[in-house]
């Protein structure tokens, strides 16, 4: 269990800022105590300091997870967000896409979002902006990248992709083994 290096921190925050923008600040400065990022086996965990101090006493080989896992650093030294990060991404997300119930299932099976399934989209979403995908009942389903800006979405035909799939909560069932 290590603190993040300078580069790792930069990578992580760059990635996070794609989705939650300036809200990263609220992840770090929290009213309910200090929270910190720790990396273990290339996985990045976000956890309260209190819990961290206790978790530190557990041997690394026996420590499976603590707090919330945000993602991992790949071998090519990029940061990959996991679906488990959705717990913190969803409430702080700046750009959102709501999908119609018909598209819901599709997305949960790992498909991109088509224009036909697009329910709503945040105003002024730029192209390739990280977005959190929600159902029409405001249940967060996953996240992805906007394939089209809001303006473009309006004029495109129904079968074009408006959002690339990155992660969805279907993974909890589909790939429980490789969540971390």
């Amino acid at each position: 269990m290590k603190r993040l290096s300078e580069i790792q921190t930069k990578l992580l925050f760059e990635k996070l800022s794609e989705y939650i923008g300036a809200n990263i600040k609220s992840l770090i400065d929290r009213p309910d105590g200090t929270y910190c990022f720790r990396v273990q086996k290339d996985r990045v965990y976000y956890v309260s300091e209190k819990i961290l101090s206790l978790a530190e006493s557990v041997a690394p080989e026996n420590l499976i997870t603590f707090g919330i896992c945000f993602g991992k650093f790949t071998k090519s030294q990029k940061f990959l967000l996991h679906i488990t990060a959705l717990t913190y991404l969803a409430p702080y997300a700046q750009h959102k896409i709501w999908v119609k119930p018909s598209m819901e299932q599709q997305f949960l099976y790992g498909h991109h979002i088509l224009k036909s399934g697009l329910g709503r989209i945040t105003e002024n979403t730029p192209k390739y902006q990280g977005v959190v995908v929600l159902s029409m009942a405001d249940v967060p389903l996953g996240f992805g990248k906007a394939a089209k800006s809001t303006a473009e979405c309006k004029h495109t035909d129904p079968m074009t992709i408006v959002c690339f799939h990155q992660a969805d909560i279907g993974e909890y069932v589909r790939s429980e083994e490789s969540l971390l």
Binding site: L63, T65, I68
Partner: peptide, 11 residues
């Protein structure tokens, strides 16, 4: 993670 439990340590 699915249930959004953040105060846990799994060992």
């Amino acid at each position: 993670h699915r249930l959004g439990i953040v105060n846990s340590v799994v060992t």
